[in-house]
């Protein structure tokens, strides 16, 4: 009976330890596909919001998931990085979205000036350049 109790306690302690290790060291954030967008915006309107009040817009969107639709103005495939898709705005800087996974031109299936809806995390703005991370294509 004593041995059985000991085994049960050992099992519980083991499970707690395993959960601790998983929670602290192994668990990854859910993929973008499983996150709901808190905001749905048009690229031009999104940019205008920053033009009118950069600090306010930054605080509103920072670290939030945003769905943006617009026209593709550039597609980059930098070395050591996921592809970056730029969306057109009315201002002097595009919205630059880094993709969540490595995709080649065919897999992206995008052309310049084609319309696209992307979902990604807004991570900040640098001299009016709005940056999204971990983006995925919702509608090509």
């Amino acid at each position: 009976m004593k041995k059985k109790n000991f085994l049960i306690i050992a099992l519980i302690v083991g499970l707690i330890a395993a959960y601790f290790v998983w929670d602290n060291f192994l668990r990854t954030a859910p993929s973008m596909k499983r996150l709901d967008a808190e905001f749905k915006v048009n690229a031009i309107a999104f940019y205008t919001e920053f033009e009118q009040d950069e600090n306010g817009a930054n605080a509103k969107y920072l670290n939030k998931v945003v769905e943006v639709n617009g026209l593709v103005s550039d597609i980059e495939f930098p070395e050591n990085s996921k592809p970056i898709i730029s969306l057109k705005t009315d201002g002097f800087s595009p919205i630059r979205c880094t993709m969540e996974t490595d995709l080649d031109q065919d897999q992206l299936g995008l052309r310049l000036n084609s319309e696209v809806t992307l979902k990604g995390e807004y991570i900040g703005v640098l001299l009016m350049e709005i940056q999204l991370n971990r983006s995925i294509i919702i509608k090509p």
Partner: peptide, 24 residues
């Protein structure tokens, strides 16, 4: 690697600025 860093150089004033987002 971060491929989205912003930098401005002013050769008349001898100034350089670099700005980057950590999440990038």
């Amino acid at each position: 690697h971060n491929n989205k860093a912003l930098s401005i150089v002013d050769l008349s004033k001898g100034q350089i600025a670099v700005d980057m987002l950590i999440k990038a």
